[in-house]
Amino acid sequence: MSYERTIWEKIADNLRSRSMWMLHYCTGCGAVELPPSMTSRFDMERLGMGPMATPRQADIFLITGYLSVKTLRRVIYTYEQMPDPKYVVGFGSCTINGGIYYDSYATINRVDYYIPVDLYIAGCMPRPEAIFEAFTELMRMIRKGEAIGWKKYKENYEWYKQNQLKSLGEVYVHDEFHE
């Protein structure tokens, strides 16, 4: 599935594919694979990628590992705070089908039921080589205009919202220590 793009959007997509700023959502165990991919051994920055501290500046949302019900609320918040176009990468088996937590009462089983995921990296854990394979693939998808999760989220917002409400009851975050 691919949308018609104007020449300006094609240029913009080309730029976006070469300057990807990532927001790491590292509540799972996958975070440990990122330092080697960022530092001297594999050096993510040579592809123009780098970590960003806030969702406002990020292009890629990297969800590493399992999401519990509690963190899913924060993930949805964060995803909706990111500016378009935004891409989501699910990292590790837990984001695909629950992984070893498939029967847990607190962790969700698939992320793309709640927010659109452009790319999954399978493995428990994926090695940095797999991460780079995935990011070159994501670059190709962005250049070709195939990474359109953010458009899908807008078009099918009702469906995603209904799924979120079904699993979470309420997306709003209540925080005992701040109320």
Binding site: I96, N97, G98, Y102, D103, S104, Y105, T107, I108, N109, R110, Y113, K166, S167
Partner: peptide, 10 residues
């Protein structure tokens, strides 16, 4: 059972 009911799998 709870997980199946609440969090649909693939």
């Amino acid at each position: 059972e709870y997980s199946k009911k609440k969090f649909p799998g693939r």
